[in-house]
C-alpha cells in the first residue's frame, strides 16, 4: 500500500459518505452543504489525477457558483426552517434497487474489462495541460465548434432561466 493509494482511499471514502448524506439527509440546507463536501472531494480526486486546471475549476464553478445557487434556491422555496414529512417518495425501495443494480452492473463491467490494468504514463516534458486545452479549444481541427456552441448553450440557459425565474407582477 503506497501513500497515494492511502490518500485516494481516504478521499474516496469521505466523498462517498458525503454523497450518501446528500441523498439521505432530511434537512435540505444540510444536503446542499454535504454536496459541497462531495464536490470538494471530487476536486481533490482531480488534483490527485494531475488535472490541476479542472480541480480549481471544480471549486470555482461547482462550489463557488452551482452550490451557492442551490443554497439560494433552497432558501427561496421553503415555507419554514424545519422540514416536514418524509423526504423519500413511496417508490424509494425501487429507486434503491435500481441504484444497487446500476452499481453492481458497472462494477462487473469494470471487473470484466481488460483495460483496467492500464497504468498512468508519465507526462512528456514541457507538457502543460492548460495550454494544450487552449490549443484544443480554438484550433479549427479540434473543438472550436463545441467551444462556440457552449457559449450559445450558456446564453440559451441564461435567457431561459432568467425568463422563467423572473417574477412578473
Amino acid at each position: 500500500m503506497t501513500i497515494d493509494k492511502i490518500i485516494f482511499l481516504i478521499v474516496a471514502a469521505g466523498t462517498l459518505i458525503a454523497a450518501l448524506r446528500v441523498v439521505t439527509t432530511g434537512n435540505l440546507i444540510h444536503a446542499a452543504f454535504w454536496l459541497i463536501a462531495t464536490l470538494f472531494g471530487v476536486a481533490v480526486i482531480f488534483a490527485v489525477l494531475h488535472a490541476s486546471f479542472l480541480a480549481v475549476v471544480q471549486v470555482v464553478v461547482y462550489i463557488g457558483a452551482i452550490a451557492i445557487l442551490f443554497i439560494f434556491a433552497v432558501m427561496l422555496t421553503r415555507k419554514d426552517m424545519r422540514d416536514q414529512g418524509p423526504q423519500l417518495n413511496r417508490n424509494w425501495g425501487f429507486g434503491a434497487l435500481l441504484a444497487a443494480l446500476a452499481f453492481v452492473g458497472l462494477a462487473l463491467l469494470v471487473h470484466g474489462w481488460s483495460g483496467v490494468t492500464k497504468t498512468a504514463s508519465a507526462f512528456p516534458s514541457g507538457f502543460d495541460a492548460v495550454s494544450a486545452l487552449g490549443n484544443a479549444l480554438v484550433s479549427p481541427d479540434a473543438y472550436v465548434l463545441p467551444f462556440e456552441v457552449a457559449s450559445v448553450l450558456l446564453v440559451a440557459a441564461l435567457v431561459g432561466a432568467v425568463y422563467v425565474a423572473y417574477n412578473r407582477k
Binding site: 480526486i45 423526504q87 429507486g95 458497472l106
Partner: peptide
C-alpha cells in the same frame, strides 16, 4: 500508483448514489 479500476469503481458508486437520490427524493431541489 492507484489502479484505474479504483477510479472507475469510485465513480460508479457516486453515480449510483446520485441515481438513488434522483429517483427517490420527494423534493425537486
Amino acid at each position: 500508483m492507484v489502479p484505474l479500476s479504483w477510479y472507475l469503481i469510485f465513480s460508479a458508486a457516486l453515480f449510483s448514489i446520485g441515481l438513488f437520490g434522483a429517483l427517490s427524493r420527494r423534493n425537486l431541489v
